[in-house]
Structure formats: structure tokens, C-alpha cells
Design a protein around this nucleic acid. Structure first.
Lengths: 184, 184
DNA sequence: ATACGCATGTAAGATGTTACATGATTAA
DNA sequence: TTAATCATGTAACATCTTACATGCGTAT
């Protein structure tokens, strides 16, 4: 139930309406977690039922501002410290790579070349983000910079891996028929 | 619809029953993609309806062996070369990190310390796997080694990032009250 | 007046998880 | 004979995606 915890985390920083929280997903959480308003509105209602948040009076245009409750804060802390990172593994990029052997090897090389370029583009985006965000000295911004740094490292590592993989394919091309029936 | 493509990829290597494909998810795909038999059986039935696979006659204990069809192979290749990596971003680890500022900073440091240890344990597991798998010179094993290498790089990078982050927290501790209201 | 952005929701369908349910074969 | 493994499925529930639907407020 990570959507719930993402919402608790955002509300711990400051209260907000469903609409505004949707925007925060698009802006600050864009590279970490995605969610749309059609998920967020009903989830906020369920969280209110569970006592994790409360809605203030309706403002203009039916706007409802949610605040986190002490129970909500406790649940957030419980989630942060419970130590279990249990999302089942689903890495579409690696899944593709795993089956790439079914392609002719010039296409495999082209694939990794493109992966590398996409990763480098992502790296440039992160650098740009870092430049644009007016970081302050708050704890949330310190963690924001730490998360962004991991994004940068991941992108860089991905580019390097893709380049290395392209090299392996090129090296293997001479020694081995990739689609070969050479299985032992 | 990545489950479908994962199944096509596995069947491109060799035919198999639902039960056996479930095992292949647990063994070769364990660190890449997860799926359970309760997903796999109905999906294979749908794929047979769509003409991507065909079931042979029933064997012992009702065993049905599925083979990939030319249409299935074409669909696999289309997926591999269609270039769009569109999974919506969902990284629970980074999500947690993003909200860690709500904890006292000794707990943040402990969190990163544990992250580092878990990543190093993962790295050791990958090394062990690499040692145990009887790699051959086939294309599928070459790609298998390339994917495993990325697992190793990711784990190593994660450990380094966690160590770096712990250092940043320690450095910030002196300069800044992490939960501080110092927002500009 | 009208278009854009604010603001909230519902509905249908796809996908994933957990639990339930059954029975055959084989090795000890 | 009995426990483990092979083998297949269904059901209920949670979650996520995409599309549909409505109306207010504000600037041009």
C-alpha cells in the first residue's frame, strides 16, 4: 500500500487537497512514484475513514484540504522503520535484455546503443533538475538531494552498463553464434 | 502486458507447461520479474486464444505443454524492438528515502547503514549465482550473464550510495537541524 | 463570451495477490 | 502408506489505467 504512504509523506510536509497532491506527484515525486487523481481521490477518502487524515471544511470549488493526523504520522513512521522492502521485483528493462538473444546481434548492439543514449539523456535531466530546484537547508530538501543523487548514479551506471554490454556482444560475435545451438 | 512477453520469451527458448514456466520464473527470472501460477495459467489460456502459443496434447496428470507459434515469436520481436520502456515509475526504496526526513537523524543513519548491508548481501548472492550457474556459450547465456552483471552493478552502486548518504546525514547533522523550520 | 486552469469525482477493465481447492505420481 | 512434488485451476480482493463526466473561477 505504498500510495497510502506516499500520501502520508506528502501531507506530513504540509496539508493539501487531492488536486494539489496530484500535482506534487507530478513534480516532486515524478522520478520516484507515479499516481493519478483517479487513484488519489478515493484513497484519501479511505484514509479519512481510517483516521489517518482529516478533511477541513470545503473551500472554493468544493476544495477539500486534508491534514495528517497523529495516527497518520505514526503509520508513516511505522512504514519507514519497518524495514521490509517487499515490492515484488519487476524490471521491464532487464526483462527485455534477458530475451534479447532472440534478435540478430546487430539489433542487440543497436538496442544497447539506444539504452545508453536514453540513460545519458536522463542523467542530463537530473543535472538540470538539480540546477533548477531552489534547495534550502531543510531536512526534506537534504533528502530530496540524496534521492536525486541516486537518480543520477543510476542513470550513469545504466549508461556504462549498456556500453559494456554492447562491447560484450561485439566480442561474442566473433567467438560465438549468438543464436547458436551450441548448448552443452 | 509484460507477463505475456516474459512467457513468450521463456517459450522461445523451449516449450513448457504452466507449472514448469512458474518454476522458470522462480529460478532464472527471480531477480528480474515475478509471477505466480495463478497469473500464469489464465494468461497462457488467453495467449492460446490469441494464437500466440499452442497447447500440445495432455500428458501425465493433465500436463499441457505450450509451444510458441510464429505469431508469438513475431509479437516477442515486436515488443523487443518497439523501443518504448513505458512502465510507470515506482521505486519503493527511493520513496522511503524521500520521506526519511520525518525521522530523527540517528534513525536515518541506521536506515542507510542497513540499506548498505542489504545491498552488499545482494551483491554476494549475485556473485554466488554467477559461480553456480553452468554458463554455456549460447546467446541466451551471454544475455543472462549481461543481466546478472547489471544486478551486480546495481547492488554495488546501491551500497555506495547508502554509505555516501549516511555521510551526508552526519555532515548535515552539525550544520542543520534536519527537522528544522529553517525553510527560506 | 470563452477558454484555461482549478477541482472533484465515477466506471470499466486490466493486472496482481492471496487463499482456497483438487487430485495424480513417485520415492522412502 | 504417507509425504513430497507434480500439476492445474478458481475466487475474492486489492490495485492501477484510461476514459468519461461535471462544474466553478478568473483572466482575456
Amino acid at each position: 500500500m505504498s500510495l497510502r504512504h506516499a500520501l502520508l509523506g506528502l501531507l506530513e510536509d504540509q496539508p493539501g487537497s487531492g488536486y494539489e497532491l496530484t500535482k506534487r506527484f507530478e513534480l516532486s515525486l515524478a522520478n520516484v512514484w507515479s499516481a493519478t487523481h483517479s487513484q488519489i481521490y478515493p484513497e484519501l477518502a479511505r484514509m479519512a475513514d481510517a483516521g489517518l487524515v482529516v478533511a477541513g471544511e470545503e473551500g472554493a470549488r468544493g476544495r477539500k484540504e486534508y491534514r495528517i493526523t497523529p495516527e497518520g504520522s505514526a503509520e508513516l513512521r511505522r512504514w519507514l522503520t519497518s524495514g521490509r522492502n517487499d515490492r515484488s521485483i519487476r524490471n521491464e528493462g532487464l526483462l527485455r535484455a534477458f530475451f534479447l538473444w532472440t534478435l540478430p546481434d546487430d539489433e542487440i548492439a543497436a538496442y544497447f546503443q539506444r539504452e545508453r543514449e536514453l540513460a545519458l539523456a536522463r542523467l542530463r535531466e537530473f543535472d538540470e533538475l538539480d540546477r533548477l530546484i531552489p534547495w534550502d537547508r531543510s531536512g526534506s530538501d537534504l533528502m530530496g538531494r540524496i534521492v536525486l543523487e541516486q537518480g543520477r548514479r543510476l542513470a550513469k551506471g545504466h549508461a556504462q552498463w549498456a556500453a559494456w554490454a554492447a562491447g560484450e556482444i561485439a566480442a561474442g560475435r566473433d567467438a560465438t553464434d549468438l543464436k547458436g545451438r551450441i548448448r552443452s
